[in-house]
């Protein structure tokens, strides 16, 4: 009976470490879902605001140019485009739900818009990884 509390104490650091491990990935996940949120969580307000403005701005300009938002992939290039689009996190989900963007690219500017949307997703992934590096101390 007396040994039970000791076992709990011994188990506590493991659980705390596990919880801390999960928390380490929070800026990464938050940054992917909402551009700049990873940096905001780490109180890097200026960097977060600039990243957010750039990524959301690029995504919005892409949509305004009637860029295509990939919904499915039938070819390898479509798969790459879809992977890039998914990097936008919730922006991609909102665009899909609201039916934003074009189904087919008809004009040159729409082709540029499609690239803007894909690149915004890739830049968002870079920003989320940067937030993760800040969290782990790999970057200051």
């Amino acid at each position: 009976m007396a040994t039970a509390p000791n076992n709990n104490i011994a188990a506590r650091p493991g659980r705390e470490q596990e919880a801390r491990q999960v928390f380490v990935y929070l800026p990464l996940i938050a940054g992917w879902l909402v551009p700049g949120a990873g940096h905001f969580l780490l109180r890097k307000w200026g960097r977060g605001a600039l990243l957010s403005a750039s990524i959301v701005g690029m995504f919005a300009v892409g949509l305004a140019m009637q860029g295509k938002v990939y919904a499915s992939a039938h070819e390898v290039l479509d798969l790459l485009g879809l992977a890039g689009d998914l990097g936008n996190g919730l922006l991609y989900v909102v665009a899909q739900l609201l039916g934003l963007g074009a189904d087919q690219v008809r004009v040159t500017t729409a082709d540029y818009g499609t690239r803007f949307i894909v690149v915004a997703g890739l830049l968002n992934v870079i920003a989320a990884v940067d937030a993760h590096n800040l969290r782990t101390g790999r970057k200051s």
């Binding site: 960097r47 990524i55 300009v61 500017t109 540029y112 690149v119 870079i126 920003a127």
Partner: peptide, 28 residues
């Protein structure tokens, strides 16, 4: 529909990408 010229699209792309590269690739 937003229809920028090729050069305007280039400048917008360069601006957004450069901001993200600048912030993520350096520390100070």
């Amino acid at each position: 529909m937003f229809r920028p010229s090729h050069f305007a699209a280039l400048v917008l792309f360069a601006l957004f990408a450069s901001v993200v590269f600048g912030i993520t690739q350096h520390e100070t």
